[in-house]
Design a protein around this nucleic acid. Sequence first.
DNA 1: AGGTCTTTCCTTTTT
DNA 2: GGAAAGACCT
Length: 723
Amino acid sequence: MELLQGLNEKQKEAVLQTEGPVMAIAGAGSGKTSVLTKRIAYLIFEKNVHPGNILAITFTNKAANEMKERVRHALGINTYDMWISTFHSMGARILRDHIERLGYKRNFQIIDDDDTQQLVKSLMKKRNIDTKLFSPKIVRNLVLKMKFDEDFIHSVEAPYNEIVARIYKAYQAYLFDSNLLDFEDLLLLTIRLLQQEEDVRAYYNDKFRYVLVDEFQDTNNVQYELIKLLVNDDHNIFIVGDEDQSIYAFRGANIENIRKFKKDYPEHYLVLLEQNYRSTNTILDAANHIIINNTARIPKKLFSTKGKGEPITHYKGVTARDEVEYVAQTVQNMVHRGYEYNDFAILYRANSTSRMFEDVFLQKQIPYRIFGNTSFFKRKEIKDFTAYLRFILNNDDAFSFLRVIAVPRRGIGAVSIEKITTYAAEKGLAFSDALRLCHEYLGTSVANKLDAFMAIIRDFRTQLDELPFDDFVDYVLEKSGYIDMLKTDDKGDVRYENLMEFKTILAENNEIYGDLTKEEMLTFILEDIALKSEESKEDVENGVTLLTLHSAKGLEFRVVFIVALEMGMFPLARTFGDRFEFEEERRLMYVGVTRAKEKLFLTNADMRQTYGETVRNPDSKFLEEIPQELMTKEGYSVAIRRSTNVNDVYRKPELKRQILKKRQSLLDSDNVNDIKKGDKITHDKFGDGIVVSVAGEHCIIAFSVEHGVKKLLKDHPAIKKRK
DNA sequence: AGGTCTTTCCTTTTT
DNA sequence: GGAAAGACCT
């Protein structure tokens, strides 16, 4: 059969065993994605299964998109009827149709993690809980756990237990009243719906005859529960996973689910995919030697028919800058030798590491793509504008109101808003009604301002139906005063451009959802934005890929650089004391190494700036775990390491003190602006100016007319003396 | 209330 | 070193 061409025996089994539960344990690079897509093709072409009867669940949007792409293009199947999505978008899609059964309104909006964090904080403040003494971050995490299991609160210790219990209640009520769902709700409410409403469950059980779950090792208990509710009595469930690649325990992923699956579906068919089609044996050897250090795992050894390949290169830079320059230089050299920019990936543990690479790549004109990081949709202006859209659609959305009322400022501040919410609470009114009826509570001037604002919002609601999206966006930006506000913002130009970019995105969606009402359309678009956090904006055709180790999962590249391999950077310092967490770091390393097809570079630096301070981290433990004969060493590691022992700095306090002292004196001399009255200086932000007077640490400087006269710290780094 | 300067916290990782 | 929150001044 043509479809099965190029598959090995094990892979064929995984495709052909269509009925009943199947568990495929698939090592890195074992052709898992192609098994998944071919299985879908086989179901449709050979078993005549309707695409609408297939549900494929992935973990990230990137994986979902890639699977869609492959099913659509490589196999020529129309994915329109097929559900290929993440757990969360699947939940949203089901809830959009049935959530009224749970008392919510169907035009609910999704609130992202940043916003829940803020919400918890403001709820704490409103209840006079000191957010300095009690971290809102901890409270929020505990509240989220309580969402999964209310009994969880009994294991929380005083005094947090009482606070968390209160905030949990308030938080849930707030979301419900505002018709908002957080990420957890997307799963939990779907479960509640399926448990509570038998006919709904029957509908989906009948619809989803074949369920496929990718990256099963990353499912948490709630997601597993959801899978079980969706799988019907035929038990046609296919899961693919690899416990060595479980990297989401921090988010509740539970490797135990693999064992639970075995128990819940005792009749399951097991397939082991161990042959690797991706990497050279040198790379696999290194990966095997790293992962073997983890205690809790089923032994598994990847093998490959590819040759030995090139050795791994470890480069140690003198500074982090040096490390980055080396990476850039190496990329360029290899491109001259015939590689494409597309062939390279730079992998790092934390998003913040990407900054310096961006700097250097820009400078050297190396094209690159960057995944994740500050997503387009998390920018202030975009969040502001989406808050407008949300509030226009739903006047009960108090959270969006708070944002919108303050940009631009409208003379309605914290005090007045507090009055409105108190009023709503006392009278038991919906937020939208409170906004209409609260006049007596407010001063006349504030009441008038609020009226004027609500009139604008009502007008926006009318215009939404009247105007094409393009014009609607311009209309809102103009009439809300947002455009005027940007004129005084020093980042106004960039912000404006981003908003125009956002307009384009809306217009594109307009075409996709052409047959819906404007309101429905906008609701879908906002949902999309909330769930698909990242959209690689700069669409470089051929560029180096910069991404975190987490988002690298499932991808492969000819050449991979894993950077900043230092104790504290990777593995992260906070994981040192916890074996469980440390082993997750190691799995992350394993994922990183196995992304490489031909050549692997491991880099780090002797010195780097962290939090604005120079630190010297020892080499990452993971470097030692790779057999040294697989590696060649370059850079600092060869030249200098023998003469200075980095660890001395940590062992000898007096040495450390000396270094600190020297560093301090360097800092001091760097920052001292020996300026006197009458000196001409230049300021990073205010431009050129003349020193009017100096007194102690401060000085008074006259800048150009638009900035005027300012009192500033004399030694502020933004001030430089002009020659 | 709003703007500016100063201090604080920070880095996991994703939906 | 940089963003966000807070303190302080107008």
